[in-house]
Design a protein around this nucleic acid. Structure first.
Length: 585
RNA sequence: CGGGAUGUGGCGCAGUUUGGUUAGCGCGCAGCGUUCGGGACGCUGAGGCCCCGGGUUCAAAUCCCGGCAUCCCGACCA
């Protein structure tokens, strides 16, 4: 495509409202423009990238046996009331009404619609399994859209839904999707990890999140340096080194001693003040457990994992104490809570709290802490459960290795849903014996617009974007530098010829034929980020060559101008683009 | 939902404290000329409901009130 005709304006300055590199660069390079908070227009270059990611996803989905459909974005709210998800989503659901004041919403996912559709069409065991997917815009009225495309209110997502006879069938579909996802993200050039995830709003059982490793990610995930164990930090476990059954009342410790700790409600302050390690303190966090007061106990240097606590106390519902809760229970001193508080009916502790030792804890009295607090003598634990949030250095639960924690962008997720939606929305089939069973479902999402941002986060430098060849808007960027000397027309003629030749050969070329200075053209080429740059100018022509620069790393080389130039370039471009989009010239 | 900040040509900003000519600067855009291998230069020019609505005043981008929008932080570790 001739750049003189492309709808494009690049910017020298970073947009004032952008925080992260992907947002800044995609706006500066003219790929996207903001229309409202968390809502973007995709300009021609951005659209090309989006479509290429989409095609990669599509090819892997088709390859895994899924069939593409298109489901409505505007959906009757009634469907969501039937599944109960209108309440689960709450204000995150974009709602609207038609002229008759019937209630609708903009689809954040499509379990309801697809399950209803499959239920209407299929009712026999002979029909299953089936796996349907769509690529469509999704809507979530985020509390706080941010980071450009990374957390938008409108985003492009591929969502697939599988329907099986039984759990064994689901496992097969799930494994196929899992493998397809790994191929998708590899082809997009992302460094990623599949980790065990939390179920979230959708509900369900086994699931994995695909995390693109990135410092700007919003999710922490844990992975083992020695084995395959990897999990979202919310559900990550560690090897328990201490037996929970230990009775440490026997150790020889003097009775509790109260110490004055004025104004020191935090662990760090108390540890400093008393000149002890934070791990010498026992942290007591107050929770509401279905109306009862619960205390969660972990060593002072660790944090309570609320998801783990919720699991330990399920089916009872937990909620971290709010200021209102504290106000309603004035004798519970926020900042000075101890495990021996008499009103605590549910005391849950991490196994590490069972170590035979004395703790420093809150004294259940403002401005006071207690020394020499001993398990079994001064306080008791009702429930033992792994409660601490995993940090780097913790032992792997699966092997003898050590865990690390990294940040990631969640670019995909696969769920084994089970029968939650099929039961609620009536997706049943009749088996050989005439008995009815709910279909067993899985659902599988990929954030396509988010992948675009994740790719930029991983593939950029201080000059701009450097797209993996697999998702770049064009295969090559051809720069012509005619100058004003006598040979200008000849330079232009040869560049035009190369452009036309490559185009005929099926290469997508962005041809900078603009009447701009060399500096502008080179700067834009680096900013826009095509994987290979070709330059034709008087200088190279004098040596009879076209100059080649690989965007990643900036390696330069020459190719002689000859009748074979086009086929040679085509071959080079084809061979250089490896499976993960990396260019090796 | 709390706290903070911002809103001025397409983009990035100054001007607002202390009201007062014709609202500036850089980039970008148009024309002319010079330049032409890493964001060139000169001259000329176009382009602004100063977020919106009220109010105060002889006079409002500037002060007051009320909205809206955008961004950041927080909404948890006692």
């Amino acid at each position: 495509m001739r750049m003189s005709t492309v709808f494009l304006r690049t910017l020298r300055d970073d947009p004032a409202d952008a925080e992260v590199e992907s947002h800044k660069l995609l706006v500066r390079a003219g790929f996207i423009r903001k229309v409202a908070s968390g809502i973007y227009s995709w300009l021609p270059l951005g659209n090309r990238v989006l479509r290429r990611v989409e095609q990669i996803v599509r090819s892997e989905m088709d390859g895994a046996g899924a069939q593409e459909v298109i489901l409505p974005i505007v959906q009757p709210l009634e469907l969501w009331e039937r599944s109960g998800r209108d309440k689960a989503y709450g204000p995150f659901l974009f709602r609207l009404q038609d002229r008759k004041e019937a209630a609708f919403c903009l689809s954040p996912t499509a379990e309801e619609v697809i399950t209803t559709m499959v239920a209407a069409e299929y009712s026999s065991y002979r029909d299953l399994p089936v796996n349907l997917y769509q690529v469509n815009w999704k809507y979530r009225d985020e509390l706080r859209p941010r980071f450009g495309l990374l957390r938008g209110r409108e985003f492009l997502m591929k969502d697939a839904y599988s329907f099986d006879l039984d759990v064994e069938g689901l496992r097969v579909n799930y494994a196929a999707m899992y493998d397809a996802y790994a191929r998708v993200f590899t082809r997009c050039g992302l460094t990623f990890r599949a980790v065990e995830g939390e179920a979230g709003e959708i509900g369900g059982d086994i699931n994995h999140e695909f995390m693109a490793v990135a410092a700007v990610g919003e999710d922490d995930f844990v992975w083992c340096q020695s084995c395959e164990y990897a999990a979202n930090v919310e559900v990550a476990r560690r090897k328990s080194g201490v037996s929970a059954a230990h009775d440490s009342a026997a150790i020889d410790v003097p009775a509790i001693e109260k110490v004055h700790t004025p104004g020191l409600s935090g662990i760090a302050g108390v540890a400093d003040f008393l000149d002890v390690a934070q791990s010498d303190l026992l942290k007591c966090i107050a929770f509401d457990v279905d109306g009862d007061l619960g205390l969660a106990l972990v060593p002072g240097d660790r944090e309570v994992n609320e998801v783990a606590l919720a699991q330990a106390l399920a089916p009872r519902l937990i909620r971290l104490f709010t200021d209102d809760d504290f106000a309603a229970r004035p004798d519970l001193a926020k900042g000075y809570i101890g495990p021996h508080y008499s009103g605590a009916t549910v005391v849950v502790a991490d196994p590490s709290v069972a170590a035979p030792r004395a703790w420093i804890t809150g004294a259940n009295e403002i401005d006071h802490h207690s020394r020499g607090v001993v398990l079994g003598r001064d306080f008791n634990v009702v429930t033992w459960a792994d409660l601490v949030t995993i940090v780097s250095g913790d032992p792997c639960p699966e092997c003898d290795g050590t865990l690390s924690v990294d940040r990631g962008i969640e670019v995909g997720q696969v769920f084994q849903l089970g029968t939650k939606y099929s039961t609620a929305l009536g997706a049943f089939y009749t088996d050989e014996n005439g008995d009815q069973h709910p279909m067993v479902m899985g659902c599988y999402g990929i954030g396509i617009s988010r992948v675009v941002a994740a790719v930029v986060e991983e593939h950029h430098d201080d000059r701009g974007i450097s797209w993996p060849a697999s998702v770049a808007p064009f295969d090559a960027h051809l720069v012509v530098l005619p100058g004003k000397a006598d040979g200008a027309d000849e330079v232009k003629r040869i560049a035009d010829e190369l452009y036309e030749g490559l185009k005929r050969a099926g290469v997508e070329v962005l041809y900078d034929d603009r009447d701009a200075s060399p500096g502008v053209k080179f700067a834009d080429a680096d900013l826009l980020g095509m994987p290979v740059q070709l330059t034709i100018g008087a200088k190279g022509l004098a040596r009879g060559v076209v100059e080649v620069k690989v965007r990643v790393g900036g390696d330069r080389s020459d190719l002689p101008i000859s009748d074979d130039l086009v086929p040679i370039l085509v071959e080079k471009l084809r061979v250089s683009a490896s499976e993960n989009g990396e260019v090796v010239w």
